[in-house]
């Protein structure tokens, strides 16, 4: 697998570490609604197909990326910087 890092270019997958499902948004930190927290911490959509996920370029620039990747073909569909993605997602 090769992932095009916005900073470092097309790099081998071995340089990155998978950081999980990027479809989740963290609940309000002051909330103690256990159903909401349980869903966030323990549940996953686990898409068969194009899946949005975080990757850390840990042997490169150490930026987190939001990668859309097909979990059946491993094809990388899109890559964005996580910071930018998260800032834009926020209302």
């Amino acid at each position: 697998m090769r992932i095009p890092c916005p900073f470092c270019g097309l790099r081998d997958g071995v340089e990155f570490s998978y950081q999980g499902d990027a479809n989740r948004t963290r609940p309000d930190p002051v909330s103690v609604d256990q159903t909401v927290w349980n869903d966030h911490v323990f549940n996953r959509v686990n898409t068969r197909g194009v899946h949005r996920e975080f990757w850390l370029h840990n042997h490169g620039c150490r930026a987190h990326l939001v990668v859309e990747r097909n979990t059946v073909t491993h094809e990388i569909v899109s890559v964005a910087l996580a910071r930018q993605f998260v800032l834009e997602r926020k209302p």
Partner: peptide, 19 residues
Amino acid sequence: GSTSEVMRRAGIDRLPIES
């Protein structure tokens, strides 16, 4: 490994499983 996909067909979208 196919749990999430099969369960989605029953309307269960999220489970504590990753494939």
